[in-house]
Design a protein around this nucleic acid. Structure first.
Length: 218
DNA sequence: AACATGATCAACT
DNA sequence: GTTGATCATGTTT
């Protein structure tokens, strides 16, 4: 579970093609990967344990459902960049754009297990408990210091990337409905690691069979 | 008016 | 330990 010997390694970063997977597949595959951000104060890293997929079609809760707007413009770019938006005036939500340019889909990062930069995250959050630093989408974004000026930022530089640390095998996942939405609420598009104490909200879910990469539109 | 939230509190298992 | 209700907050539609 905990990666005691984690070291940031840009050579293990996910490549552009990885983000062209369809949104649901990307959401599953991102669980267990490590988000790495280098700042002036130090390097932040956390292992993703909970995600949600927001689709390009047939998903009324996706920000892309109403078409291109100024706010959701990053969603319509090619996958592998950030989409950050404000919610309830207070919080930020960090998304990874998925799929081809023009598709309009993204993966919301909902929770993560801190691996590096604990002190910086604690300072950003104003709390210490490692289990709470990156638990919940607003908290995760705040711990990492992401804001709307990070929109369109690419995930393929040594300053910001996602590292594949799943050499020992992918984590076992559960699937559930997404949290905090009313439209398209029945869709099973939330994915999280079984038994992780870093997961937000409910830890109930159904088991998933296999995960296979694809090149669909999501 | 709705909103991809979080903190807090009450009630329950 | 968990779940559900309540509400502060301000941007977007």
């Amino acid at each position: 579970m905990a990666k005691l010997n984690f070291r940031p390694d840009f050579s293990k970063s996910l490549k552009k093609k990885f983000y062209l997977n369809d949104t649901e597949t990307l959401a599953k595959l991102l669980v267990g990967k490590v988000l790495v951000k280098r700042t002036r104060k130090g390097t932040l890293a956390a292992r993703i344990v909970e995600t949600e997929a927001y689709l390009s079609e047939g998903d009324l809760s996706s920000h892309s459902a109403q078409g291109l707007t100024k706010r959701n413009a990053p969603m319509f770019e090619s996958g592998g960049i950030l989409y950050v938006y404000k919610i309830y005036g207070i919080h930020r939500c960090l998304n990874i754009v998925a799929g081809k340019k023009g598709a309009g889909c993204a993966v919301l990062l909902r929770a993560a297990e801190p691996l590096s930069g604990h002190e910086i995250m604690a300072e950003n959050r104003g709390i210490d408990d490692p289990a709470k630093l990156c638990r919940g989408p607003g908290n995760l974004a705040k711990a990492f210091g992401f804001d709307v000026d990070d929109n369109f930022r690419s995930l393929d530089t040594p300053e910001l990337f996602i590292q594949d640390e799943t050499g020992a095998g992918p984590p076992e996942l559960l699937v559930s409905r997404r949290i905090g939405i009313k439209k398209s609420a029945g869709m099973m598009l939330r994915f999280f690691e079984i038994g992780s104490k870093y997961v937000s909200a409910s830890k109930k879910g159904s088991s998933i069979n296999n995960i296979s990469p694809s090149q669909g539109m999501g």
